[in-house]
Amino acid sequence: MHKGFKTTLYHIILWIVALIFFAPVFWIILSAFKTKDQILSIPPKWFFTPTLANFVDLFTRPNVGTYIRNSLLISAIAVLIALVVSFLAAYAFSRFKLKSTSLIMFFLLSIRMVPAAASVIPVFLMYVALGWKDTYPGMTLFYAMFSIPFSVWILKGFVDGVSERFDETGLVNGGSRLHVLFDVVLPQVRPGLVAAFIFNMVFVWNEYMFNYIIGGKTTTTVPVALVTWMLNQGGVDWTFMASLTVVFMIPPILAVYFFQKYLLIGMTFGTVRGEI
């Protein structure tokens, strides 16, 4: 009985912690169902008649559909390209112990550390010269590049964890190397792939500045739309901000909900040994 009470208390505390972190998000979600006056009113309105008008307004605006589609396409394709490229590289680094491995891994990581404003300058200069600005390939491949470093790191950890005996057996049995790569090793690093996918997807999904500078009107993604359309009739358009934010947060939240186990295992960089 006493132990049961302690467990319940422990569980309640856990839920409280989770809800504290969620509270501001909850407030944003509530706002999406309020009118502007209700959003700004103090004391805050906890009880109100929810309205769907904001969402109706959102989807009747021109271009919002395009922005969401851009966000989905650009981030998904960029991260997929990055995963394929990174998986090949991770396999090579893990299996063939190339001399340059640590050097390349190192450079990959330090690139990711440079402030966005710094890394976008040369790319901007290059895109201006080549006319790649505001093109889907230009945008997608740039984001792919940004997703590669972390993906290589995480996948190398997982490929390291796959015994080389599988490779050998596969080759001995007459499979090609690519067959070993994609049919034998790939399925075993799935958690790493999922984790890398979600992690990078969240980054690209929410990224603002690169899209603002090297994107343009055809490749605008939602974060840029949020900032550029946030003002209306002389005030911040809170209802638009709230409703678009809510729509926009659904995919990553669903991904984290459904792939949570993979995500937790994935973030171990392939070193999982215990229970998560």
Binding site: A18, F21, T245, I253, V256
Partner: peptide, 30 residues
């Protein structure tokens, strides 16, 4: 054994899933 653990963890992780642009705008209001 936490009841609804998956949901609780998802809620816990939501802050990092939201675009900094939105977070900035709404915290300015908060």
């Amino acid at each position: 054994k936490l009841p609804g653990r998956r949901l609780a963890l998802t809620l816990l992780f939501t802050p990092m899933l939201i675009a900094p642009a939105s977070v900035g705008a709404f915290f300015k209001l908060l």
